[in-house]
Design a protein around this nucleic acid. Sequence first.
DNA 1: TAGTGGTCTAGACCACAGG
DNA 2: CTGTGGTCTAGACCACTAC
Lengths: 267, 267
Amino acid sequence: MATTTSLSPETPSTPGEPETTAPAPLTPAFSPLYQQIKVLILKSLQAGEWKPGELIPSEMDLAARFRVSQGTVRKAIDELAAENLVSRRQGKGTFVSTHAEQQVQYRFLRLMPDSGDLSSEGPAERQIVDCKRLRAPADIAHPLALRTGDAVLQLRRVLAFQGTPTIIEDVWLPGGPFKGLTADRLAAYRGPMYALFETEFGVHMVRAEEKIRAIAADAASARLLGLPQGEPLLSVERIAYTYNDVPMELRRGLYRTDTHHYKNALS
Amino acid sequence: MATTTSLSPETPSTPGEPETTAPAPLTPAFSPLYQQIKVLILKSLQAGEWKPGELIPSEMDLAARFRVSQGTVRKAIDELAAENLVSRRQGKGTFVSTHAEQQVQYRFLRLMPDSGDLSSEGPAERQIVDCKRLRAPADIAHPLALRTGDAVLQLRRVLAFQGTPTIIEDVWLPGGPFKGLTADRLAAYRGPMYALFETEFGVHMVRAEEKIRAIAADAASARLLGLPQGEPLLSVERIAYTYNDVPMELRRGLYRTDTHHYKNALS
DNA sequence: TAGTGGTCTAGACCACAGG
DNA sequence: CTGTGGTCTAGACCACTAC
């Protein structure tokens, strides 16, 4: 079959339409079939056709829907699974990834106790310190692809492990998608913050980038963590993205690393 | 074909041999064919049948050699490529990964300037501060899977970018595989340290794990980096592994992160 | 027993690199 | 032109899950 033609399911191309008004070929036109299928599945995920935790159609069903062979759908799903957007379970089906009900509680948290792992420390004790709406200054707006002055939510919380405050997090969220988020709703929610984002606001974080630095604790941070001012802390600046690389969260964490460390694997 | 039988190329099993003396089924006996192929290719890589930078046999050749279909070999190589052990180049073939002649100079270095990338800063200026043999104390021997008192090489160097000393690295290597490594040979070598390890000592690092902390600069570190004592530094403790998860290097880096940051991607 | 993902095969054709 | 990896297909069978 031609690999040079683009593809749209149940929606034959409209040859009469002038190319100039075509909605821009996000599908780069000269890509393998399975890549086109991947994009189509991605669009369905983004559109919420299947929600986090749900079962997506079987490979055979998708193959029929897209008029390709099962192997081609398989390769598309393989890539989605490699990117942790879906997870396959033999005999059951393929499920949309979720930050809730995941065996790993904190999918994006790389902090580990120096001995054992996070789960061995029991659930983190969370305390919301602050939650307010404000107009984004430039250095907040820019990473979130907003304009200076746009409404953002800012919240600050402290995470403690086994009674020891270990993490301070400042989180900035775009005001629009997260309208209605309050400290109370956050405090009431059991489970990871990203799980709440999924269920309450329909925002699914799929990947993130972090910039890590060593800094000295300022007065406020030192007080919250019960450390002397000037103590070295790990500064972890994260931008989290939804589908299509849209930034939806800016987060700055301060980790104490005398009893914990940030773990990373290189290959 | 049976997926429950194990496989050995040109070396039919020896049924007469008692199982108790069998060299232990590293191939877990009940694994898919392509996994068994992967292990066989891995063994060839480890044995040095194809060296870093070299071309490995084509998929068809390997398929013939292992008596399986090309698609099965392909899936095995797919996984090796995903782990960065080999890299595929369309029209050319599949090559053993190398730390030399790679477009990316520092495959394992995650430090980035706050604006731009490492290559935009030109080559790092390297200075060997120290290089000596010693008997490993317990905290060095253990991560290297050595015994306390075994011979190890210790070296210290400083990396500067655009004239600014930015990284101090202490490196510990097992004395056996790296017999003959001297400060002079290191200083004379152009290219990444891991490339020298490959060409001069036949040690190919394939993956690494890092533990990251924030610490305060001690007197010696502060002097080498031209910073005031007590300044926060990023401590990056790395264990690098060759094939088969054998640890071959312990490295502790101290990064100044006022102009640079450690970059990490999460998914 | 039926349905799912997982493996394996064989064959065709495409895209790319290099003689 | 040949040989390489890359894509796509169709069909068979296996392993796991759930009814």
